[in-house]
């Protein structure tokens, strides 16, 4: 799962700190050394199906997230600076497909970091994520955008 990839990234970062140099070169070396170190641990410790595929998907998710961040930031700046305040805020119940706690946390945090959306609460049965929107144009459309965006990426990683 994602946690293994994060562990590897953390190991790479630790390597960079040890070298007192954060650069792409040291990151790559650290990543490889970390991977090697993980191989020496008992299988149960880093057991992971299709590890490399998931690592690649995680990297893709990071790029997707940065893209979304830039677009959404621009939208919110426009809404705040518009001459006439034309927003329709509201809290929408978003039906979750994910069942994994770590991935739901990740999804909720990404939604909060993306301007214009803010996760308020997760229902205890993991059925809904309640999201506050700065501007709800169309409830169905907003839900679809997250489903096809962040959640689709996370579901691929969860498989």
């Amino acid at each position: 799962m994602v946690t293994r990839f994060f562990l590897n990234v953390i190991l790479a970062l630790a390597w960079c700190l040890l070298q007192d140099e954060i650069s792409l070169r040291q990151m790559v070396i650290g990543f490889l050394v970390g991977l090697l170190a993980m191989l020496f641990f008992p299988r149960s410790f880093h057991q992971e199906r299709r590890y490399f595929r998931k690592a690649a998907l995680s990297v893709r998710l990071v790029f997707f997230f940065v893209k979304e961040l830039l677009i959404a930031n621009w939208t919110v700046v426009r809404q705040v600076l518009a001459l006439k305040l034309a927003i329709r805020p509201g809290i929408v119940a978003y039906p979750l497909s994910l069942q994994n706690d770590v991935l739901i946390t990740l999804l909720a945090n990404m939604i909060t970091l993306t301007p214009g959306t803010l996760s308020v609460e997760v229902s205890p049965d993991r059925q809904f994520l309640f999201i506050h929107f700065l501007d709800v144009a169309d409830v169905e459309e907003e839900i679809r955008l997250i489903k096809d965006g962040f959640e689709r990426h996370l579901l691929l990683i969860a498989q």
Binding site: R88, P89, G90, I91, V92, S123, F128, F130, V136
Partner: peptide, 14 residues
């Protein structure tokens, strides 16, 4: 409470 210009509140319903 939410600002009265808001449009939906699914959380309250739930």
């Amino acid at each position: 409470s939410l600002w009265q210009g808001g449009v939906v509140d699914d959380f309250k319903k739930w």
